[in-house]
Each structure stands twice: as C-alpha cells, then as structure tokens.
Nucleic acid binder design. Structure first.
Lengths: 190, 190
DNA sequence: AGCTCCACTTGACAAAAGTCAAGAAATTAA
DNA sequence: TTAATTTCTTGACTTTTGTCAAGTGGAGCT
C-alpha cells in the first residue's frame, strides 16, 4: 500500500503521518479487467480510484464517434469529478484498456474524510486546482499549437503511452484523426 | 453591493446570511481603466475580483503571437488561479478591454476567509470544481468540433460578446485565425 | 474635413488536416 | 498454428484552415 501513501503524500502535500494513515485506510484494493467499465455515462460516479497499475480510457460517445478525453495511467487518480462532486449523471464513460489494480474510495468514505481530516477540504481544493491548471495548459495547446506540436508535447511528457494503448485513442485525445496521427508518427521515424 | 452578494450566493451556494455579509465585506470596490493591466505575467497574482461591469482579456504572449485564453465578463470572477493559489508567477497577462468596476479581495483577506468561514474551503473547492468542469467541456469542443461549430457554440452561449470586443480576440480564444473567424461570420450573415 | 490608427474583410494561394478505401501488420481467439 | 478481428498505414483526393497582402471602413483626433 506504500505506493498509494507516497502518491497521496505528493499529491495532497500531507505531512502528518496519522492523517495519511487514515486517508489510505479508506481506500480499498480493487481490480478491474480489461474491457470492463469503471463508469458508464449517465450513471452517478460513486468512487475515486488511484491507479496502482493499468490504464483507463475516459471518453464520450457522440452520434458519430467516440471522443477520448484522456487516458489515465499508473500513479494517477481516476474519476468523473463533476459526477462525484456534484452528484450528477456522468458525462464520461471510463473503461479499462488493460487489467488494472486500483485503490478505490467510495462516496461514503470520501465524504467521511471531511470529518476525519480537518484540513481535507483545503487539500482537496489544492488537488482540484492542480487539475484545473493542467486543463488550462491543455486548452492553451489547442489554441496555439498544430497537431504535430501537440503530438511532440505529449510524446515528451509520456513516451510510454505510445506503445501501451491503441494509437487511435491517443489521436483522439490530441484532437486529430488516426490517419494524421499515423503520418506524424511516420515522419518522426524517418 | 447587492449584485456581488447575489453572485457569491449563486456561485458558492451560501445559505447563511451572516457568512455572506462577512465574505462580501472583504471585497473592496475598485476600478480599472481600459487598457490597464489587472495582472502581468511573471508577477504573483495577489487578488481575486468579481466583475461588476466591464471586460477583461486573459492572454499569453508567445514569441510570435498573443493567445487569448479567455475573456471574462460581467458577473464572473477573474484571477490567475494557479498564481493566486500556489503563489507562483502568473502565466497569464490580464488586461481591461474597457473600463471595469470590480469587487476585489486581496490575498491577505482571501486567506482570512478560511478562518472566518468554517466551510469556506469546501465552498472554494466546489467553485474550482465548477471551473474545472467548464474547462473539460472546452477541451471536448476542441477534440470534437470544427472551427465553425466552436463559433456557433460560443455565439449561442454569449452573443453579446460578439459586439463588445475586438473579434480577433474571440477568434484566438476559439483557436482560429482572425481570417477564418471573419469568413465564418460572413457565412452566417448571408 | 482630413488624417491616423485599428480592426475587419477579401482574394489568392499554401499548408494542414480530414475522408475514404484498400491493404498490411499486429493482436486475439479458436 | 491458423483464422478472425482489430489496428495501423498508405495513397489519392477533398475540405478546412492558415498565411500573406491589399484594401475597406470606422472611431477618434487635430
């Protein structure tokens, strides 16, 4: 369980060892098989998970295509924040791309944190603020970069992803067609 | 001051009238003239403002161009969240497009809120989460829509903006060139 | 009025990215 | 292993979007 501890420490910046133990104890080890759904759009998201191992794809189905919003990887958290926090139907579907080991906290225990750890809301705020900033940066990339530049940026940040998941999903997540992705990829290999 | 009250109530979902008074009392009425800077990138952002009237453009200067990240309008808040919350140099420059009336809280009083209003961190969390969800939607629009579809979406959501600010800024904020924006615009008028 | 400064528009062209269809390669299942 | 399925690549072509450059039009100033 120490990996979760380590990440919660670095994500939430918790110094107090007791609080850390309390938080970690509320996460239960769970698994999810390749192809299974962590969440289906329209349902209420009742959990937040830390990814010990595996990959999950977060996407939205529109009439004519699937749009991959993000692929969550080892060492990160996964949930539909909007659904979890506001208790509204999820907009995203989340599916395991390979078998995953997760540490999962359900809504009940998640709400418990507020009373068990006095500074939890503050920590949570900082966590969400950090996520917000990441999205700001992602928007900036769409306002100012070409498809190829976005490819380069992601590749630099997360090379491993490029040989772990179907490339079409990465293409979608970068806002380009699989063909464009493939052509950029070819260009790099020459 | 009742407009600020109203918006804080709806943004933060505050029921308690005393808390509301306390919060509102920490915001001071300020103004900023057309062309003046609310924030310059590189500086630490020391304030959060509610826009009573006016328009502010949030942008980033790159080597070869200015990228407008967003234009904040009446009834919304403006700040560099990352800089305010994490005390880091601002990535954004924020400039008044016209004279603005603001209600502004400085960092000192902003931090005071935590101690004055017990549930403040929780409210703040919800506020930031709502902002996060808006950005998620914006990213989705870049992953799944053409320039024209993004134009239509924004126009639907905020028609007024289109005759209040230089169109080139809206173009940039939508991730397209001024020329493309102009051509889409022409198409609509025919 | 005439001048200046912007912002916007327009046309011609170039580059980027999407679409469609066929086929190759890789992965999964039998 | 072979067969079936999925994913990826490639070429030909279209559409979308960007770039450059010239020109229009308006707001404000002298």
């Amino acid at each position: 369980m120490s990996e979760l501890e380590h990440y919660i420490k670095s994500y939430f910046g918790i110094a107090n060892q007791n609080d850390l133990k309390t938080i970690v104890s509320l996460f239960k080890s769970t698994t999810i098989k390749k192809g299974d759904y962590f969440l289906k759009s329209g349902k209420i998201c009742e959990k937040l998970s830390f990814i010990q191992s595996g990959l999950l794809r977060i996407y939205i189905k529109t009439e004519d295509k699937e749009v991959t919003q993000w692929i969550s990887t080892k060492g990160y958290f996964v949930t539909d924040l909007s659904s979890l926090v506001f208790n509204t139907p999820a907009r995203f579907t989340i599916q395991a791309l390979i078998d995953c080991e997760l540490y999962t906290i359900d809504r009940e225990n998640y709400l418990l944190l507020k009373s068990l750890i006095p500074q939890w809301p503050e920590l949570e705020k900082l966590f969400i603020a950090r996520c917000f900033v990441m999205l700001e940066e992602r928007i900036f990339s769409h306002l100012s970069m070409t498809a190829e530049e976005r490819y380069d940026l992601l590749f630099e940040q997360n090379k491993e992803l490029f040989n772990q998941v179907p490339l079409q999903y990465i293409a979608s997540m970068l806002g380009m067609s699989p063909e464009t992705f493939s052509r950029i990829r070819k260009k790099k290999s020459i």
